[in-house]
């Protein structure tokens, strides 16, 4: 008897999902015939480089046209790392680390400087080539993560103290808002880097794009500290 009931419940769920699939197929089919208007993106493409000074349009959209989203975004990461740090129990729980050979330690010593260079490249050249604050920050966060995996967590916590990470995160967010207020101080609205009468420099070079470069660095450091804290809290998480 239970088997039939089980079968019936499974069929009920499959039918629900198939119904959803048909509904979505119908919606996509109808939508696909309509011509998709994209006058906003045409404006970004044609005038994006002059208005914001950044070559990489995705970074100019993220850090200048819609930088309020990035502020909300950075708050989500800060809340996530605060939740995970908060849920960690106080007593020490050792992760069942495996004993690695000497080769692993040596390669780890080679990898760390490479990661540092790659991460800072992605952050600093965020507005010139693909990359940006979020990606570069996570690559920078790989350094403490690799240390936690190869050595025990105490070593990585010794090198990058948890307090320093929390301080970096909070300072990063405060600097993000202060840079936003910089827009108000120079007369135009909050978070204005293209519109505030700041020299945008000529688009190709490194120092160009007004505040985008500083915002990139701040978000990079902040995301790096946040992701490293999330990884360590998950490991210490009872």
């Amino acid at each position: 008897m239970i088997r039939i009931n089980e079968m019936f419940k499974k069929l009920y769920k499959i039918s629900l999902v198939v119904l959803l699939a048909i509904f979505l197929l119908y919606v996509f089919n109808e939508i696909h015939d309509l011509a998709s208007k994209s006058y906003l993106s045409e404006h970004y493409i044609s005038k994006g480089v002059q208005e914001t000074g950044a070559i990489n349009l995705v970074t100019s959209v993220l850090y200048d046209y819609r930088s309020f989203d990035t502020l909300g975004e950075a708050t989500v990461i800060l809340t996530a790392s605060a939740i995970l740090a908060f849920l960690v129990p106080l007593r020490k729980v050792a992760m069942h680390g495996t004993k690695f050979l000497i080769i692993v330690h040596q390669t780890m010593i080679f990898i760390v400087p490479y990661l540092a260079v790659l991460g800072s490249y992605l952050i600093l050249f965020g507005h010139l080539n693909p990359g940006g604050g979020f990606v570069g920050g996570v690559v920078l966060a790989l350094i403490p993560i690799v240390m936690t995996i190869t050595y025990c967590i105490e070593f990585s916590e010794y090198k990058f103290k948890p307090n320093i990470k929390t301080l970096l995160e909070d300072l990063g967010s405060i600097c993000f808002i202060i840079l936003g207020l910089f827009g108000i101080v120079t007369g135009s609205n909050f978070l204005a880097s293209g519109q505030s009468n700041l020299g945008l420099g000529n688009p190709g070079e490194l120092i160009s794009g007004g505040l985008i470069l500083c915002l990139n660095i701040i978000i990079g450091i902040k995301v790096g500290a946040g992701m490293a804290k999330i990884f360590n809290s998950l490991i210490k998480g009872e």
Binding site: N56, V58, T59, M95, H96, L122, P130, G131, G132, F134, V135, V138, V139, A141, L142, I145, M227, I230, F231, L234, I235, G237, E238
Partner: peptide, 25 residues
């Protein structure tokens, strides 16, 4: 390219690490 980089680093990279830790624990 930007979304590809972010997807590679965060979803394929970090989230897999989180899953492996959960499995380990």
């Amino acid at each position: 390219p930007s979304a590809a980089l972010a997807e590679a680093v965060i979803t394929a990279g970090l989230t897999t690490g989180f899953f492996v830790i959960t499995i380990n624990k």
